[in-house]
């Protein structure tokens, strides 16, 4: 795992990453938090088709993230 921050959109399927920061508004952050996405969370990118939404696996659930969302999530 590299230490450099990267955009979630660039992470290929099957990689495990740690959430560092979400660059979005209050409501969105709260929504992500309720789904378990808070800084420090480890999760897996299950699907990144480089088009359309993502599927990630975290805390035992599969969650779909819109591509626009993934652009604002920084991971390492």
């Amino acid at each position: 795992m590299s230490e450099a921050l990267k955009n979630l959109a660039t992470v290929e399927s099957g990689h495990q990453v740690e959430l560092v920061r979400v660059n979005s508004g209050h409501a969105m952050q709260s929504r992500l938090a309720s789904m378990g996405l808070v800084p420090g969370t480890m999760f897996k990118v299950v699907r990144n088709d480089h088009r359309g939404p993502f599927i990630i696996g975290l805390k035992g659930a599969r969650v779909v993230l819109g591509r626009g969302m993934a652009d604002r999530i920084e991971v390492r």
Partner: peptide, 12 residues
């Protein structure tokens, strides 16, 4: 306005 991205659980 900008569209809000989707966040949704996929149940098994």
């Amino acid at each position: 306005g900008e569209s809000v991205p989707m966040v949704m659980e996929l149940p098994p």
